[in-house]
Design a protein around this nucleic acid. Structure first.
Length: 882
RNA sequence: AGGCGCGUAGCUCAGGGGGAGAGCGCUACCUUGACACGGUAGAGGUCACGGGUUCAAAUCCCGUCGUGCCUACCA
């Protein structure tokens, strides 16, 4: 125990680093595979190595840490599994930028060297976010940190790939994929962001081959006409019935292409005639397949036009569009242009406009996997919370499309497939094959594509635990207890982990999925670099301290609603942290000479019994709230209790005991104070770990870290309902006197005299026993307790139930103010009574409402009646005096 | 186009069939021996609008308006 007085203001910087080292150094974050305790496990949503801590991470990890610390204190063997993901495209982009600065590029240095450089980059910068997570106080088991590209996880990736391929759940094929010409790779459908853009609908005339006239098509992408292989119309469309079997001439290239009939075409849109470009549009691709059309790809992977684009070869796709339009205009084939707004796909990494391209790629056949993942949630094996996200999950799973998993980049898990240069055989294997099993050729070349990063992330809950080996970790901690994440990766990640976990480990990856909100700015806007409205969590940590920040995030973590974060809000909770600090400071100052605590009911004051009962109730509420992922309710309950019950009332009342010359009284108060403070910091610890450890360590008669102390159980304290009622009475009387002082503007230095008129003997007893609290807290000179007297002269009166508190104000009473005060009170009560009286006058209410409700209303009317009567008497007396 | 959510005190939001709540802000007073990152008191709301169910609706249902987000291959 340290004896010197605590600083007046809490200084987070000094405290945070010290305790984090202490926790980590003492292995307090470590999980065990040999423990009798029940397991509790969470896998971290792996931040990507290019990232820096943002608000989303801060919230996500704060919530996970709250759960982990709470569970540890409740006696669980907790594994919080940390790690990072390799973020294929993003990381490759970062390193490529570096190369560009040095005047080179990856093609010049070659694949092998490039991958080496990425590993070097990762070694230097990839751990940054991990240190930032530590600053947040995250209690991950860092000894188990994993990386999606490390050896074990790579082995899991190969195992999964090969098994899915063998089960015919991975296939390779030519399909239209989303191509990012800047990142130079295919993207999965999910990685495409659709954005509404102002554009034009161009009406282009395709001359009929065998007669005069045109067939006019409407398109948003005139440049793709170079790859057209047909024009389609609806077979039901009367306008075009006579075109059966005919051809039109493709403008510019003057090539005949057939008119085909397909129900897919919407008669109402445009002209009802649709140009078909099977190599550059997913729908056209389908139509093309149905009609065995040729697929002509006219755009290169860098977005330029290729040799099949004839005169436009070498132009960029956007330039080509302009040139074609010019040419169409001059040849009279451009009928008209209409403004048109429609959704255009963009790369989620670099925002470049996506080019749908025909390309050979690897796909996962997700249908069968998705079915099982849906069933698991339907059967309640995994709960998705809040439950409205379940619907979103089903909706997506039921409409799922095959997943394009190959990426044309170098950084990632290279696809374990080899092509035999001799016979063309495709070999998929965990280890590199020496010879072709079919033709025995040794000339094999490995697939150059790598896998989508999410492919490895999908294995995270079991690959990090050692799968495919049957490890103790897997046996102890799988399925994990809960996954905490944002809805933005529900499809990207959660759904895929569900599919893979069920398929490969034969059980769901998590029991609960808790979906938390997005963090937005004060205006409710998404934070983004381009908007410049980012609040940097690291700056917040510096300015306000980790605990203040974590507490703010907890209070704002309301289920199902995005949070608006502002600095004022954080400053407000910084004040709360300081309040905790000062409450502890006061307590510890008075505990220097204390003995080990014990609760001797016989000697407890009303305040003691009350606060000991309240903290038990609060412990129970907080437990319920955390168990239900109601972080905001849990944090608010802490706030209200600590500030408005512990500090506002208990500390003030305990001062009388602690400053008492009666040693026994002081000792009792010290006992209660120790138990109370110990309970408070333990309740708060999951939310604000640093300050609570600091206080815990200074608290007499505690040992070890608060991290491993028992979370408060209601049974540690008292359950004394009478004390609650008695305190309500006491607080009501004190509040009444304060109210009059405030309203009447009685200077604080002016001690006033009070007469309390109380009939009930029990109530009288309570007040008499606690007179010293009233005099001190209401700053009163003296109190007389009487029964059934006339209202004293020059008094202001507060009516509390059937108790009247007369404040004697000789020479200070402003009659007009007092009259107004009472009148206002009367009006308020009358309004309330009206409502209740009407209810009682209603036969239906009396007969149909539940009896306890009716009783309540009757009781309320009776109480209000008494109060009203007294108020009216007081008013009359006052007017007579006037 | 569908789906989900939101509209409650000046601001940010809890609550969710029977007495309108919190934080911040605001007003007045207070250098009280834990804390001015503090204390005491106070002002402030036909709970978006219109219907319906009910003895009773801010709360449940339907509709309207406003607003946000997600999903989607109509060129």
């Amino acid at each position: 125990m340290e004896n010197h007085v605590l600083a007046k203001t809490y200084e987070p910087k000094e405290v945070e680093e010290k305790w984090y080292y202490y926790w980590e150094g003492n292995d307090l974050f470590k999980a065990s595979t040999k423990s009798d305790k029940p397991p509790f496990s969470i896998v971290i949503p792996p931040p990507n190595i290019t990232g820096s801590l943002h608000m989303g991470h801060a919230l996500n990890n704060t919530l996970q840490d709250i759960l982990c610390r709470y569970k540890r204190m409740n006696g669980y063997n907790v594994l919080w599994q940390p790690g990072t993901d390799h973020a294929g495209i993003a990381t490759q982009n970062v390193v490529e930028k570096d190369l560009a600065l040095k005047g080179t590029d990856r093609h010049q240095i070659g694949r092998e060297r490039f991958v080496e450089l990425v590993w070097e980059w990762r070694g230097k910068f990839g751990g940054m976010i991990i240190n930032q997570l530590k600053r947040l106080g995250s209690s991950c088991d860092w000894s188990r940190e994993r990386f999606t590209m490390d050896e074990g996880l790579s082995r899991a990736v190969r195992e999964v790939f090969v098994r899915l391929y063998d089960e015919n759940l991975i296939y390779q094929g030519d399909y239209i994929i989303n191509w990012c010409p800047r990142c130079h790779t295919a993207l999965a459908d999910l990685e495409v962001e659709h954005e509404d853009m102002d554009s034009f609908l161009y009406y282009i005339r395709y001359p009929l081959e065998d007669r005069q006239g045109y067939l006019t098509v409407a398109t948003t992408r005139p440049e793709t006409l170079l790859g057209d292989t047909a024009v389609a119309v609806n077979p039901e469309d009367e306008r075009y019935k006579d075109l059966s079997g005919s051809y039109v001439l493709l403008p510019v290239l003057n090539k005949p292409i057939p008119v085909i009939f397909d129900r897919y075409v919407d008669k109402e849109f445009g002209t009802g005639a649709l140009k078909i470009t099977p190599a550059h549009d997913p729908n056209d691709f389908e139509v093309g397949n149905a009609h065995q059309l040729e697929r002509i790809r006219v755009i290169n992977e860098d977005g330029s036009m290729n040799e099949l684009a004839g005169p436009y070869q070498g132009m960029d796709r956007f330039e080509c569009r302009e040139r074609i339009l010019d040419d169409l205009k001059s040849s009279g084939l451009l009928e008209k242009i209409e403004p048109y707004r429609h959704a255009v796909g963009h790369c989620y990494r670099c925002k470049t406009m996506i080019e749908p391209l025909l390309s050979k790629q690897w796909f996962v056949r997700v249908g069968p996997l998705a079915d099982k993942a849906v069933t698991a949630v339907k059967d309640g094996k995994t709960r998705i919370l809040p439950s409205n996200w379940e619907g979103v999950y089903y909706e997506w799973m039921n409409n799922i499309r095959d997943w394009c998993i190959s990426r044309q980049i170098w950084w990632g898990h290279r696809i374990p497939a080899w092509y035999c240069q001799g016979c063309g055989e495709v070999i998929v294997a965990k280890e590199e094959p020496r010879v072709c099993p079919s033709c025995k050729s040794k000339n094999l070349r490995q697939e150059t594509d790598v896998l989508d990063t999410w492919f490895s992330s999908a294995l995270w809950p079991f690959s990090t635990l050692g799968w495919p080996d049957s490890t103790d970790e897997l046996k102890t901690f799988y399925p994990t207890s809960v996954l905490v994440t944002g809805f933005d990766i529900l499809f990207f990640w959660v759904a895929r982990m569900m599919m893979m976990g069920i398929h490969f480990v034969e059980d769901v990856p998590f029991r609960d999925v808790y979906i938390h909100a997005l963090v937005k700015d004060e205006q409710g806007q998404k934070m983004s670099k381009s908007k410049g409205n980012i609040i940097d969590p690291l700056e917040v940590l510096d300015r306000f301290g980790t605990d203040a920040f974590r507490f703010t995030l907890s209070v704002l973590a309301i289920q199902g609603r995005d949070m608006r974060l502002s600095e004022e809000r954080i400053a407000g909770y910084r004040n709360f942290i300081n309040k905790i600090w000062n409450a502890a400071r006061f307590s510890l100052m008075n505990l220097r000479d204390c003995r080990p605590p014990s609760l001797d009911n016989g000697n407890l004051t009303l305040a003691d019994r009350w606060i000991m009962t309240r903290i038990g109730q609060v412990a129970e509420q907080i437990t319920q709230h955390i168990d239900g992922y109601k972080f905001n309710d849990a944090a608010s309950t802490c706030y209200q209790f600590v500030w408005h019950e512990f500090c506002d009332w208990y500390v003030e009342m305990a001062k009388l005991e602690l400053y008492s010359r009666d040693r026994k009284r002081r000792e009792v108060a010290q006992s209660v104070m120790q138990i109370l403070l110990s309970g408070v910091v333990r309740l708060l610890h999951p939310f604000v770990p640093f300050i609570t450890e600091e206080i815990w360590q200074r608290l007499p008669h505690t040992d070890g870290s608060i991290m491993v102390a028992q979370f408060p159980q209601p049974t540690e304290f008292l359950s004394d309902d009478e004390s609650i009622k008695e305190m309500d009475l006491l607080r009501g009387v004190i509040a009444g006197i304060r109210n009059i002082r405030g309203e009447m503007n009685i200077p604080p230095r002016r001690d006033v005299r009070i007469v309390i008129d109380v009939k009930g003997s029990r109530e009288r007893q309570i007040l008499e026993d606690n007179l010293h609290y009233i005099t001190t807290l209401a700053k009163v000179e003296s109190i007389d307790i009487v029964s059934g007297i006339e209202k004293p002269d020059s008094s202001a009166t507060y009516v509390f139930g059937d108790i009247q508190v007369h404040v004697l104000l000789k020479g200070l009473l402003n009659y007009e103010d007092e009259r107004k005060r009472i009148y206002k009170e009367i009006k308020k009560i009358e309004r309330e009574m009206d409502v209740s009286r009407k209810k009682l006058a209603n036969k239906d209410f009396l007969s149909q409402a539940p009896p306890p409700i009716v009783e309540d209303v009757k009781e309320k009317v009776a109480l209000m009646g008494v109060k009203l009567e007294k108020l009216n008497q007081n008013l009359t007396t006052l007017e007579e005096l006037k």
